[in-house]
């Protein structure tokens, strides 16, 4: 979140991806950064132990959200 906001402030479009358990943390961090309501993409958890096929499923979960935020 910290990195994405820094990049955005430099004019580089960025999207934050978090897995579901980190939803509240992303919200809290957005508030701390003075950007309440900052949007990010939320996908299923975990990532660490997935097969390549399962990683692709996560990407499918992310893609529409990422597109929406990059073009917002």
């Amino acid at each position: 979140m910290q990195d994405a906001v820094a990049l955005e402030r430099k004019g580089i479009p960025s999207v934050v991806l978090v897995t579901k358990p980190f939803n509240s943390q992303a919200k809290a961090m957005a508030n701390l950064l003075g950007l309440p309501g900052y949007e990010y993409a939320v996908i299923g958890h975990p990532m660490g132990s997935l097969t390549d096929e399962q990683v692709l499923d996560r990407a499918k979960e992310a893609i529409d959200q990422v597109e929406k935020q990059l073009t917002a």
């Binding site: 358990p21 980190f22 509240s24 943390q25 919200k27 809290a28 961090m29 701390l32």
Partner: peptide
């Protein structure tokens, strides 16, 4: 610092 359990502290 705002690192409170559940929200920021995971």
């Amino acid at each position: 610092y705002g690192s409170v359990p559940h929200d920021m502290d995971k």
